[in-house]
Nucleic acid binder design. Structure first.
Lengths: 191, 191
DNA sequence: TCCTTTCTTTAGTGCCCGCTACAAAATAAC
DNA sequence: GTTATTTTGTAGCGGGCACTAAAGAAAGGA
């Protein structure tokens, strides 16, 4: 019983997500959030807790929607090489999609933030992504698709670096074809 | 004539530089700056103007000291390939030097900043670095050291991406040898 | 209809931000 | 020593920050 909520919780969360994506955690103010979400501060605090927890929900939602292409690419190709190639190509697409802010929220939203919880949460997501690449490469080494001397850790760090660089380039205004060229050149690193 | 300044302007500027380097422009407060510099706010404003102009001086100083290795690498090797190889290796060294904050100030200090002047100033430095790589590659294409079909712009964007990714990795705590491995793999992109 | 519960809006709270007025202290010129 | 000039420390300015107390408005249950 009681008065029903006048706004759509998921729609408002998506608006908040895009504010955090565009400006990062610290540079995004509660006033800016409420303006983007179309609600007043007490509604935000009643529905999401506080700014920090709203950010946590936004990160989770990002992983499940805009960022989900990465896990799909790594799981949906017969070889590590094809999986990473798809991962890089799709990153070029997503990072330059004009329908939302450029680059990757997980990579950029915690930069220059004071809150150690925010920094750690995003860094763990980035490390998890790097570890996923590494495991995909190791799988192909174990099955003989890649030579046994392949350094899976180095390849994972390299491709993670390239993806993080592509995100920075996208935020600097790089065009989609520029990032596709980066992806193509990065694929030459395979043994 | 008048009272002489009680602090060393250059030493205090270096302290401010490291604050901006570690935390970025917006997350660095004037209170934090004055504490790091060992002075009071009126001394900061008398000596440097305001926070924005102090940041501009810090960026200029960074380019002339910690960041000068890049121009030296591009100018001091006989081939573009050797120059970029040295650039990547030295970036791995500098970005993980425990004597100062990790990563590159030009790449990270403007992320998630509201001030468009700060954003634009740092982006122009990044674009200038990318253009310098491109010109170095073009020079070797013109002299016949690289095949005429070489895409200098794509190579420049690729290596700029790798360097920006290395900076992010360093800020995430990557070891020096990890970044050296990234540099080695990136060098496989050459035609 | 009336009561209870929840969401809504208004209007703030205390705090830290970049920045500065002011007067005391210190130095150079004479 | 005196004066003019600059730097210094103290103390505080207006403003935006994250967050909330209070009361009205809207819904369900009796």
């Amino acid at each position: 019983m009681g008065r029903t909520r006048a706004f759509d919780r998921d729609v408002a969360l998506e608006r908040a997500l895009e504010e955090f994506w565009r400006q990062g955690y610290e540079a995004t103010s509660v006033a800016g959030l409420t303006a983007a979400m179309g609600i007043n501060p007490p509604s935000l605090y009643a529905a999401y807790g506080d700014k920090r927890r709203l950010f946590g929900e936004a990160v989770r939602r990002y992983q499940e929607t805009h960022g989900a292409f990465a896990a799909r690419a790594l799981a949906g190709e017969p070889t590590a090489r094809a999986a990473v190639g798809r991962l890089l190509r799709e990153a070029a697409e997503v990072y330059t999609d004009p329908a939302h802010p450029p680059g990757c929220m997980i990579i950029s939203a915690g930069v220059n933030t004071t809150d150690p919880g925010v920094i750690g949460e995003l860094r763990e997501h980035r490390e998890a992504g790097k570890a996923a690449i590494r495991r995909r490469v190791e799988r192909d080494v174990e099955t003989g698709l890649l030579p046994p001397e392949t350094d899976a850790g180095a390849l994972a760090t390299f491709f993670a670096s390239v993806i993080q660089g592509m995100s920075t380039q996208a935020r600097d205004g790089a065009a989609r074809e520029d990032l596709h060229a980066v992806a193509t050149l990065a694929m030459r690193a395979w043994p």
